[in-house]
Design a binder for these strands. Structure first.
Length: 311
DNA sequence: AAGACGAAAGTGGTTGA
DNA sequence: TCAACAACTTTCGTCTT
């Protein structure tokens, strides 16, 4: 802990999720991305406050000149200004001569600068969908922002071609949840969209393969709060379960196993050890696996870690 | 009677030729 | 594209508390 604080003092940019200190900077886009977990670093957020000082309300009002903060979740990042088609100025007077020609040129360039018209359209639809799906699943803002970034990158790599926007958004959001360690499983994405599980899983793999994001493997510990919450288990039991998972990881027992099953089994064991027992059925139901899987994992864990099942 | 256990067959996804 | 494979599920009969 002391070390971490020291680290933070030395280097202002520490990933708030994984504690990593290496970032890829993409100054063109104004992004700083953590190399170990792929999240958009939160301590590099744009400072949306004013750069001037004001001591009275009048001063503040006189100097304020900014709008809403920039965000990745709006197709043009919320920074649009449009030049209207009417040849009249703000007061309704008509504009004449060279001034009029200048405005004509400005309009032309503004439209040309939106040359990626289809991309822009795609993004508007996609960001709408992200907003909808995100709130449906109760995902925090940060996480939606990261999903938006992943989607933009996927779009740049032309991964969206031939796939549905909805599917790619769901995939981006799923990966973003994994980065932010928010337990949302593939199945939850499919219940809120019209996407089939298989298609979604494929999109997820495509993104992992072609887009430069590091996504941590789903860990049983991420699921723990959720499952134990459903079962109203005590903090001690949950802690015990977490440490069992850590031991299992150290022994290499977790590779290739369904994290749900592992979380379930460790909670079952911890429940018995800490006198907060739940039946296999209850645990299985809460963690979306079968009793059989709970049993198998539980047997494995007990045998390999030499746990004696005495309360 | 409810819960735990384990065998056997079936399912969906991954991997490597 | 296909077969082999590992993990997980379903089902069901038996044992334990």
């Amino acid at each position: 802990m002391a070390k971490k604080t020291e680290n933070q003092a030395k280097n202002r940019h520490v990933c708030s999720l994984c504690g990593g200190t290496d970032f890829i900077e993409d100054s063109k886009r104004g992004e700083r991305v953590c190399t170990s977990c792929g999240c958009v670093a939160s301590d590099h957020e744009m400072d949306t406050g004013p750069e001037w000082r004001a001591f009275t309300a009048e001063e503040r009002n006189a100097r304020a000149r900014t709008g809403a903060p920039a965000t990745l979740m709006i197709a043009d990042k919320g920074l649009a200004t449009t030049i209207s088609w009417g040849n009249r100025d703000a007061n309704g007077r008509s504009i004449k001569g060279s001034r009029r020609a200048a405005i004509y040129r400005m309009r032309k360039w503004q439209i040309r600068s939106m040359a990626h018209g289809s991309k822009h359209r795609n993004l508007s639809i996609a960001m709408n969908e992200l907003e909808r799906l995100g709130s449906q699943l109760g995902v925090p803002r940060d996480c939606k922002e990261t999903a938006a970034l992943i989607y933009r990158k996927a779009l740049d790599k032309r991964l969206v071609r031939g796939r549905s926007i909805e599917g790619m958004i769901a995939a981006s959001l799923y990966l973003s949840c994994r980065i932010h360690r928010i337990p949302r499983q593939l199945d939850e994405m499919t219940t809120e969209t019209r996407i089939k599980r298989k298609e979604l899983a494929h999109s997820v793999r495509q993104i992992l393969r072609y887009v430069n994001v590091k996504v941590p493997l789903p860990s049983p510990n991420d699921l723990m709060p959720r499952i134990s919450g459903d079962l109203n288990m005590t903090g001690r039991a949950v802690q015990r379960a977490t440490s069992i998972i850590e031991e299992a990881r150290a022994e290499g027992l977790t590779a290739g196993k369904d994290p749900g099953g592992l979380a379930a089994a460790s909670l079952y064991i911890a429940g018995i050890l800490e006198n907060d027992r739940r039946t296999q059925r209850e645990i299985a139901k809460a963690s979306n696996v079968t009793e059989v899987t709970v049993r198998n994992r539980y047997k494995e864990l007990v045998n390999s870690l030499n746990i004696t099942m005495e309360p």
